[in-house]
Nucleic acid binder design. Structure first.
Lengths: 300, 300
DNA sequence: TCAATTGTTTTTTATAATATTGTACAAATA
DNA sequence: TATTTGTACAATATTATAAAAAACAATTGA
């Protein structure tokens, strides 16, 4: 009826683990020290100590705490199952949106999402609030949330924004010092592109991964928290749409390989202007592809 | 112990208002229709109708609903006071952070913020979740939130990001059609800049407003939801820091006026390259100013 | 017969209540 | 005097639940 005691349970087991490393009848460190070890507050530690005393694991009077016996496996508390990783919720959510081709202006039910993603409702609320900053979702007047994304306007503005960021990245690469790791990565990418170009007839599906690697390498030169945050979302969206638009995939990928190689050429020649121009061409192609993939979905 | 009935109360008063426009003994529209009028679900409408019947305002049997008497002021329900505008929470929060010079890595107490801003805690949670997308705040491992912003690294990256966006905007302005409203605005800005330049000795404080107008005009040409979202935060932060860094303010503002005029000159000559270059110089100055204002605060 | 409306049930959302956890400070110890 | 513990209090996370929305079934009237 209030917050869970997972923190206490985890701390208890962790302290138990720590005690196992101690010699028999060893003194137990101070509460503050234990709190540091378990990464929780003293309140939780005191609960743990109380339980340990009850179970006859330790003696505890004032600041005199001693280990009475070695902890056994059955001393541990059971943890509430299903940690349900909150971290990659974003990945899973976008995956869901794109994979099931959830149309724009779909009402999102927090209750339903909570079930499908196995995540508590308040976590989702927080997550959706974050996404609303990207204009991907918004609050509905009658309550709840709504998926906005993936209209034509959204795709255009996303592409444009991506272009702005990526052209900036390209410029920065051209100015990167010779010992920057990006140059080694680009050399490797050039080789891999050439190899795939040879085997394009059979392996054209492989391009998707290469494309992601290429753009990641370019953008890795830019160290900026704001840009990095957006890049994650952008690359995910583009990546998926490319994977699913199967029309003329082979031809498209062959063309993209050449575009990538042109960019690499210009970069290695340290010709920022040419690199920007080549990147601009490539980004225009990408935009067209993204838009046409949306059109196909509209028809299907 | 659950959600408030504000929605019902507001709907009731709105329906009352609608009934006042009706002739005496008029039939009441269908529940669905009323729901549309009040912007609320049928469930709420039925609660409203029940209350109206109890108060002898209407007769209600099945789908036969009639007005019995004209609603009077005392029929209205009292609304829970203090709407506490959720909309400009962002403005007020950033204002608070910057005005009180809240240092980086300050733990934020949702309870305390809730009191100072007169906003429910869950609204704040949602808001902070949104800000965490901008890297301004983050979750602490032991629970709660923490203000990250306004370290040197943050200022640098923010400035860099601003430059990327603004240089893009400048390029777009240079390509804007002659009948675009930005040209009229720039002409006006030129005049205002020249006027202030004349009176700089006395009115140099006025520059802050002019600066905001100038950058807003440039950026208004870019129609992009992602960029617009960021611009709001960026301009607010720069704006405040300029206001408070009083060192050499007059000299700084005089220089900035000239920089602005150079940009306007290049733009009106449709010389995108020169405009970008001038903008780049101006943005570099801005960055330096922002950084030095942080340094002053560190010392103070 | 069928579209519109109402009656009823189910589902979802917003939010107050609250157990758990964190934190500050006083008292005790060594 | 610096640690450590005891105690009180405040904040947070999470639940429980009333309010609202949505879905569905039954009814009505043209």
């Amino acid at each position: 009826m209030a917050r869970s005691d997972t923190r206490y349970r985890e701390a208890f087991n962790r302290i138990l683990g720590y005690c196992e490393t101690l010699p028999p009848e060893a003194p137990i460190p101070s509460e503050t020290r234990l709190a540091e070890i378990a990464g929780v507050s003293r309140t939780v530690i005191r609960r743990c100590l109380t339980r340990m005393e009850e179970r006859g694991l330790i003696s505890w009077r004032g600041r005199d705490k001693h280990l009475l016996r070695q902890p056994r496996p059955e001393d541990r508390i059971a943890l509430p199952e299903a940690p349900a990783d909150r971290r990659d919720l974003e990945q899973r959510f976008l995956d869901w949106v794109l994979r099931f081709d959830v149309p724009a202006n779909t009402p999102l039910s927090v209750a339903e999402l909570s079930r499908t993603f196995d995540v508590p409702q308040y976590d989702l609320k927080e997550f959706l609030a974050g996404l609303s900053r990207f204009g991907l979702v918004s609050r509905r007047p009658q309550g709840g949330w709504m998926l906005l994304g993936f209209t034509k306007g959204f795709a255009i503005e996303l592409s444009d924004f991506r272009s702005v960021l990526e052209l900036n990245a390209v410029t920065q690469v051209a100015e990167a010092p010779v010992d920057h790791p990006v140059w080694a990565e680009l050399a490797q990418l050039r080789a891999d592109h050439l190899a795939l170009k040879q085997a394009i007839d059979g392996d054209f599906h492989e391009f998707s991964k290469l494309d992601e690697r290429f753009h990641l390498a370019i953008n890795s030169v830019v160290r900026n928290r704001f840009i990095a945050e957006f890049q994650k979302v952008i690359s995910l969206i583009f990546h998926y749409h490319y994977m699913w638009d199967k029309s003329e995939e082979k031809h498209r990928n062959a063309a993209a390989i050449d575009e990538h190689l042109t960019i690499i050429d210009a970069l290695e020649a340290r010709d920022a202007g040419a690199a920007r121009e080549a990147a601009q061409r490539h980004l225009r192609t990408s935009k067209t592809t993204l838009l046409s993939s949306l059109r196909h979905h509209d028809l299907g």
